[in-house]
Design a protein around this nucleic acid. Sequence first.
DNA 1: CTCAGTGCAAAGGATTTGCATGCCG
DNA 2: CGGCATGCAAATCCTTTGCACTGAG
Lengths: 153, 153
Amino acid sequence: MTITMITNMATKSIHDEAASMLRQHEHRYTPGRQRLVDVMDSAHRPLTLPQILESDSELTQSSAYRNLDVLEQSGVIRRINATADHAAFELAEPLLGHHHHLICVDCGAIEDIHIGEPTERAIDAALGAAAKGLGFKPLHHSLDLHGQCANCQ
Amino acid sequence: MTITMITNMATKSIHDEAASMLRQHEHRYTPGRQRLVDVMDSAHRPLTLPQILESDSELTQSSAYRNLDVLEQSGVIRRINATADHAAFELAEPLLGHHHHLICVDCGAIEDIHIGEPTERAIDAALGAAAKGLGFKPLHHSLDLHGQCANCQ
DNA sequence: CTCAGTGCAAAGGATTTGCATGCCG
DNA sequence: CGGCATGCAAATCCTTTGCACTGAG
């Protein structure tokens, strides 16, 4: 019950949040951009451009690429370079929450996963210590598990 | 003196190891491939193809790409998709050891880092647990810290 | 002699850009 | 109205491939 309410609120506020973030960067929240956010919000995993276009036939390739750029620059989505051929896109952490990926080395499929908070803190502490010595300013970490998905074994 | 000896020995065995791995895959350890291994062994960070070509003017683009493929398939090197434009290459874990990366979001520079063994074990345990429930067979994890390098701040 | 490896140039494929048009503010 | 946004097609850029040649076994 509580979870359902939160989910609904979150879905609604994703568009509000996206619109607000775009506005701050002096961009409009056009229908094409809303559709992109819808597609990425519906999928519970990062999507490649072909997957995005398949999910909504109203989207065109070049505008999708352009709008993904705008959304990325505005902090609404994140681009991840999981595979060699296609980039993949997912909602940014403020909208989707912190998580990690299982990446199939054979078919390239990606699955979202979560790990415990204590482990997250241990990771950030360890990375932060290493970064400090090199004058590197941490923004966020990415942790992926590469292996074979159930289908490819 | 001692360090020099160790370095020489290590460098030597990297070539031996690489030659052995290639032989197992029925490939030759040609001069061009040795040069690639030398370049990657000298750099203490992953290199993109342009960086590799700059490091050794004897290397040509297409042969470098082809040989990097052969070396990757033989397990000598690893391809990482850290940035959107260029793939990067580094010696594989059996030759270089397990480590992680600092990736500058502005200039794309990559730096190798190490974190403590207990944290590594915690990561593998957490990822393994998540993978198990989905029938995903773990091979290896990748952990990167994205942020700004000292030059780009 | 044979066949993997090489180098050049051309092809391939994902992503970006030019340009004319549409549409919101 | 003015300028961002869109869609098509052409261009770009990284990477791969075709082909003829070289050299090791």
